[in-house]
Amino acid sequence: MAHGTPAVGRTEVDAAGNSDEHLIRRAQDGDTAAFAELVRRYQDRIHNLAYRMLSRREEAEDVAQETFLHVYRSMASFRGERFSSWVYKIASNLCLDYLRKHRARLLSLDAPAEAESDLHREIPDSGHLPEDLVTQAELAGDVQRAIATLPPKYRLVVVLRHFYDLSYEEIVQVSNLPLGTVKTRLFRARDLLRKRLGTIATEGGWGA
């Protein structure tokens, strides 16, 4: 993935040689600094996952916080699996639960609109910015609004594939869905997104 994000499916090792799995074992032994390190490592990725699913930052932060609380509470049961798959699985389930519980409210049209206003909040004085930065913010809003139109079960699969670069098999692990279902939902999601995003004109064309 772009922007120097650590590859999601791979195990990160820090300067001191601590893998995620090493840190979770230390956390299981009551080392709160090791738990803090895991939160620090994953907070952006987990918050982003929730943001992509819910389109709202405040709710995304609540669900991200709930994810780490869940990790903390259930870490005794963590075994063998890759830590990243485990934490994505927890976050994915919490996002889908959230969307089920708050379906009516999130269906209101202001949810996707917030995607763009959020971005504009980060650019306080967009009048003096170079053209391409504004375009990036508009594109980001278009992308998030398009994702928000997908049914949640399609949304999750396409987010894991294209925001986290997970393979089909890694998505199977995280979502607990059969491989055939992962592919069907991914393909269907992309067919829908093609109609909304495929014809957006950007500088440099599609291959850039």
């Binding site: 993935m1 772009a2 922007h3 994000t5 803090a36 939160v39 620090r40 907070q43 952006d44 990725r45 918050h47 982003n48 943001y51 992509r52 930052r57 995304a60 932060e61 991200a64 916080q65 780490f68 609380l69 594109l139 980001a140 278009d142 992308v143 398009a146 994702i147 396409v158 294209h162 925001f163 670069d165 992309r190 067919d191 997104l193 093609r194 909304r196 995003l197 495929g198 014809t199 957006i200 950007t202 599609w206 291959g207």
Partner: peptide
């Protein structure tokens, strides 16, 4: 299809607020 995919893959990670670890 490729353009839709590229647009998604070009998006930045949206992280939490600065006090997130303390809140957790």
């Amino acid at each position: 299809l490729a353009r839709a995919v590229n647009l998604m893959e070009d998006q930045q990670l949206v992280g939490p607020g600065p006090d997130f670890l303390r809140k957790v």
